[in-house]
Amino acid sequence: MKLSIIKFLVVLGILFFLAPLVLTSLSAGWRWPMLWPAEISWRSWEYLFSGQSQTGIAVFNSLLIACGVTIVNLGLAIPAAYGLIRFPLKGKLIVQIILFAPLVIPPFVSLMGIHFTFIRLGLTESLPGLILAHLTPTLPYMIWALLSSYRTVGPEWEEQARMLGANGLQRMIHVVIPFLLPGILAGSSLSILVSLSQYLITFLIGGGQVITLPILLFPFISGGDPALGAAYALLFIGMAFLALFILDCLLKWSYRRVN
């Protein structure tokens, strides 16, 4: 196949995906069989950015949960991945099965089981409860990214630093972390992205009281106002894209620093 055809298909695929969202978000009474809306209406976008919509608080909550989850994940995964890769370990297989199980068994299954306990502990309808709930689907990705990053730090480097008299903390800060930075950023991107995309477990634990972007968006796309649904979908994509773009810039910067 010609190279240009492959490129054409990629561009066409992305356009064919974005076009219906953009057109629908700008449409008002877009009748079949018209290919394009007869008139452009900014109603949905005006509503989205107006005070009556809950866009601001939804974006804020979504980002707050995603960042909270990512910070906790880093705290858990940096030592865990180190332990998995650096030491001979009895029951390594079991540990891996435990840590990676939430990648295949859907987290909502476990969350429905623990839902009642969350209610008793007063964790439902709260941000800490949601951060806890989002940990299960995101932690395996963080560990996975860090594991591949740890493989690039040979133990020799740490040996070297130890010989030169660096203590544990200094070795961590000056040797391990710089090598680990790409993995930290890749894991954070995945963790943020997966957390931003959660609907069902946010709905279960948040009880519809904590508004995140998926919670706000879902009623519109499941048979609500199509124009608003499309506008919110685009906002979501834009937000996820921006978050990943920032992390990607940091990633490039960190590569340059390591090299």
């Binding site: 299954v109 969350l111 089981g113």
Partner: peptide, 10 residues
């Protein structure tokens, strides 16, 4: 969180 949830559900 995860296996506890599975066990409680079971």
């Amino acid at each position: 969180l995860f296996f506890g949830g599975l066990a409680l559900g079971l």
